[in-house]
């Protein structure tokens, strides 16, 4: 006990220090540890959440990028298809039009030919008739009454034939 007293050990002082420690423990527990630990937990949670969120957004944007590329490729393909179709259609239409025009022209030409031929024939017939009449008139005037009608028509025929042969 002499040892203890030489170090100044005193039960009351000891107790006072124990009390000090417990006061400090309580104060620190309620004012520091508890709020700080809760805030640390909260912060960790927030950080984790925002990390997850960032990861999710990253993934989503990657997906969107892929989708965008797909859509673009599809659109490009479709556009190409449409252009090709339009070109084809245009070509078809052009061909049709040309053909139609050609046909129309041909028809006009052939019609014209037919008309021309008919007119030609008609003109020829008229000419023939006129020539015949003229010949009759001329020959009747020249030959007068000497020739009978039989030889007359024979002569006419000969003249006509000669003319045709010309």
């Amino acid at each position: 006990m002499e040892l203890l007293s030489s170090f100044g050990i005193n039960g009351k002082l000891l107790l006072a220090q124990v009390v000090n420690f417990f006061i400090l423990l309580l104060v620190l527990y309620f004012f520091v540890y508890k709020p700080i630990i809760s805030i640390l937990d909260k912060r960790n949670k927030t950080i984790k959440e925002s990390q997850d969120e960032a990861e999710r957004i990253k993934q989503e944007s990657a997906e969107l990028e892929i989708k965008k590329k797909e859509i673009l490729a599809k659109a490009r393909e479709e556009a190409m298809k449409i252009i090709q179709e339009a070109r084809k259609e245009g070509e078809n239409a052009k061909g049709d039009a040309v053909k139609k025009a050609q046909e129309g022209a041909q028809k006009i030409v052939s019609d014209a030919k037919v008309t021309i031929k008919a007119e030609q024939e008609a003109a020829f017939m008229e000419l023939k008739k006129e020539v015949a009449d003229m010949v009759i008139a001329v020959s009747s005037k020249v030959i007068a009454k000497n020739i009978d009608s039989d030889s007359e028509s024979k002569l006419i025929d000969n003249v006509v034939k000669e003319m045709e042969n010309k």
Binding site: A16, F31, P35
Partner: peptide, 29 residues
Amino acid sequence: PVNNSLLASWCAVLILIVLALIIRFSIKL
């Protein structure tokens, strides 16, 4: 019986309590 060490530890406790209060009321995320 108050000795000078007890007085010093009271000072320490007091300073820590003040510090704890400051922290408590200025705690932020």
